[in-house]
Amino acid sequence: MKKSLLAIAVLAAALSFAAPITASAKDITLLNVSYDPTRELYQDFNAAFSKYWLAKTGDKVTVKASHGGSGKQARAIIDGLDADVATLALAYDVDQLHEKGKLIPKDWQKRLSHNSSPYTSTIVLLVRKGNPKGIKDWDDLVKPGISVITPNPKTSGGARWNYLAAWAFAQKKFGGDEAKTKEFVGKLLKNVPVLDTGARGSTTTFVERGIGDVLLAWENEAFLAQKELGVGKFEIIVPSLSILAEPPVTVVDKFAKKHGTEAVAKAYLDYLYTEEGQEIAAKNYYRPTLESVAKKYESQFPKVNLIKIDDAFGGWQKAQKTHFSDGGTFDQIYQK
């Protein structure tokens, strides 16, 4: 009696586990592997795209999402996490999909406009209400006694943008003196008590656990913290100089081909560039690239003096090699 009950229970479990697989066969499932702070953006966007695609083709698309530090996510795709589209924090991580995984062509970034970045962002400083430590610019972050929160550049895309923004500021301040720039960034890193693996982890450390005086954050993440987590608890400080962050998107050709989802995956990314897609991005505090939408949300985004990675660092490949690869400036500075 007991044995047969057990058998039924096991069978029931097995059936309930098998059922959704057969049911979803006629629906389309896309997997979007993304970086950390885009959770809210893609939650909204996926719902909008499903609706749009259903109306256009009659097919039901379910977009599954996976989020984490950008470098970590790229690594997972290379190891076999079969994403149809990758929407990561920076071009270098997407480059890896070509170099280490041979999953996409080398010229992937030319396939969509604006360097395949449908939205952009930048790095700002988030401080506690009233700015008790009087933080105005990057200069203030190296002062003794200031606790700075930023994630680990080895795993987080946001952290790499943070690091490069600080580097660019110091470079300008010291007129390109490399030793002094390094010393400046080193002092800044000395003020960092915890290096989380992703941008979201850092935001939680700063906002929820109350650690640190200033958070180096994606602009969208800073807005989210300020407007939706602790209304009136935080202030955004726009530094005198920051970096134009271009988080690129791509179809992961090899996996999409295998799933037979190339067309939907491409349409999914194209939809990011449409007016609807751009509106959703702007509402989630990403800077839209489409002129008309950018104008509409102009007042939302402060004017910042933005440098470009290609101009200041010679592109991501070079920046990664100089600063974040093993033995790069980050290792040299951080291990001291």
Partner: peptide, 24 residues
């Protein structure tokens, strides 16, 4: 796991995701 929600998340991983989404 790969952290695909609704597919490869176990309970402990789901807790982490919700926490990271400020859904305390």
């Amino acid at each position: 796991s790969g952290h695909i929600r609704g597919m490869t998340n176990t309970l402990p991983l789901h807790v982490e995701i919700l926490y990271n989404e400020y859904n305390y």
